[in-house]
């Protein structure tokens, strides 16, 4: 098992909290025919961070940087959940037992299953622990 297979490159964009910023980022993706697979906005006082999993992360990085955005790649992992009552609980409990501390998390519910995307401090170790507890991680190649 190669943990690298499960580490997904999320794109993070610094954005001021003002009208039109999201549209500007989304437009850039559209122009480059980049598909967004998952997406969240974290908001603080006056600014925010837009986080997205996209099918063409390098292209997205290039395009946004050329537009002057402050962009960074962040390693995250995606845990598969059952799309039914108790699905999140099952996974959250597993993460707790595995001693994994989340920096942040967001989720989406897709056609096949629900997915919890998490950022953790020690990503390699988290992958190993989740798998050893019987969790299912989505492989990075699904997102590209």
């Amino acid at each position: 098992m190669d943990v690298k297979n499960y580490i997904i490159r999320q794109i993070s964009v610094f954005s001021e909290n003002k009208p039109g910023r999201l549209a500007s980022i989304a437009k850039a993706f559209q122009e480059e025919k980049i598909n967004i697979l998952a997406f969240s906005i974290a908001e603080a006082d006056g600014f925010g961070v837009v986080r997205a999993l996209v099918n063409l992360p390098d292209k997205a990085f290039q395009k946004l940087t050329s537009l002057g955005y402050n962009v960074a790649f962040t390693d995250v992992i995606a845990v598969k959940m059952k799309d039914e009552p108790g699905g999140l609980f099952e996974i959250a409990e597993l993460l707790g037992e595995a001693g994994i501390n989340m920096e942040y998390a967001y989720a989406y519910s897709g056609k096949e299953a629900a997915v919890l995307i998490i950022r953790v401090d020690h990503v390699n170790e988290a992958v190993t622990r989740i798998l050893s507890k019987g969790g299912t991680l989505l492989e990075a190649k699904i997102f590209s």
């Binding site: 993070s12 610094f14 603080a44 986080r51 402050n70 962009v71 960074a72 942040y104």
Partner: peptide, 11 residues
Amino acid sequence: KDAFSDKINDL
């Protein structure tokens, strides 16, 4: 650019 972290706390 170098200081940008995806973590709100850092910012």
